[in-house]
Design a protein around this nucleic acid. Sequence first.
DNA 1: CGATTGGTTGAGCCCATTCAACGAATGTGG
DNA 2: CCACATTCGTTGAATGGGCTCAACCAATCG
Lengths: 238, 238
Amino acid sequence: MSLAELKSVCGSCGIRELCLPAGLSDEEVDLLDQHMSHRISVRKGDYLYRMGDPFRSLFAVSSGFFKTVLVHEDGRGQVTGFQMMGELLGLEAIHSTHQVCDTVALEDSAVCAISFDQFEQLGQLMRNLQHRFNKDMSREIAREHHLMLLLGSMRSEERLATFLLDLVMRHERRHQSGETFMLRMTREDIGSYLGIKLETVSRLLSRFHDEGILEVRGRHLRILNRAALAQRTEASES
Amino acid sequence: MSLAELKSVCGSCGIRELCLPAGLSDEEVDLLDQHMSHRISVRKGDYLYRMGDPFRSLFAVSSGFFKTVLVHEDGRGQVTGFQMMGELLGLEAIHSTHQVCDTVALEDSAVCAISFDQFEQLGQLMRNLQHRFNKDMSREIAREHHLMLLLGSMRSEERLATFLLDLVMRHERRHQSGETFMLRMTREDIGSYLGIKLETVSRLLSRFHDEGILEVRGRHLRILNRAALAQRTEASES
DNA sequence: CGATTGGTTGAGCCCATTCAACGAATGTGG
DNA sequence: CCACATTCGTTGAATGGGCTCAACCAATCG
């Protein structure tokens, strides 16, 4: 599953306000720390966990980038999400005793592991924490509803535009440039996530490039015309 | 939003073991009851809530059948789920102060309303209840992952077969016939949910009928060959 | 270095869509 | 109770968006 384990503390974490302890008092964060966080490094390409592994912990992405993949019996796989710092991994397995999907680091990454047992106990002590967690779960459900809208009723160009704008916003919320950034995933990952083929992703990126909306050099992206991109998000009347 | 409000009690509810209080002790169920449940009737076609309504309560489906619909700015709508007795409504809004989707009764129905504020307080008192709720949220996330797989990588025939088998299993878990049942939703609702057009749904149902897998008479369904249906769930090598 | 992985682009094809006509069932108002 | 409108469902014919198959290039790696 992973490699080095380092001692760490939410209290001094740079992304504390993006992550699970957002909004907690210092004392509460201390409690959270003492009882359960420890950090795990995951190297690019490694699995944080795989379907069928016993489920014991949630993980908060401390740094790096992950994808979650659901694999069907017949071998087909679907990328169900990309997670960046501050986001939680493992929520989908709480209802089970085992992991129900794979999660893979797309670059060298670090996560904070949280024993779910202990987390539930802490939730009993700290209403704040439980409330925050309920909201996180709910937000994940709502996110997936939007993705269902995307997969169920958008054309490929709209899907990609929506995806890119989502990345832009997530970068900006982390005080990273939304104008210029690197894609951490392959065209195939993007295609799987969006329900289209990698060739289509490639063609669309080229098209956006030719139209002056983006500058694409491999995985390096520059957003040249965000408004135009936003427009491609909507069905074009004709 | 709704109509009659009747006093009701989880303790004597026929579907108690399917619903939120499953696994709770009698005392715990009493507590749950006293503090918060009340029942609301919703007539066929009526909204239980609409996007933008203030969010205050969760709802447990007591009887009947609902759909949840996410509406995009440009007017496109996506059916994000169908809910039957014992299932929870409103989870997607917890992270917000307002409802984030519409939910509509597809037949005359009843729900138990649960003030979310009070529910969170009760969760602090009853670890069982909170644990059960965490699992419900997680199961919903996992369900949506499967739907993403369906929408992202299945062909229309596989989508419909998967959908029908899911309905069969949900009926059986409720001790209702999985062999013979009524579809409560239109072809258009099914199509929206599965990311295909109503005409395609109609054609596929006809095809399954012609192949002797189903008997279709309007919304009345009889599953004649469940194994064959299960096979249509998988990608056919060729 | 060759092998592998990731990405781009073209040509032809096919599955699902669009557009359209029609039938059945339901409901409404005169 | 009938006439009419509306909603829901089925089926056909033609179209097209995205897929498949394929060739090729660039970067990385052992």
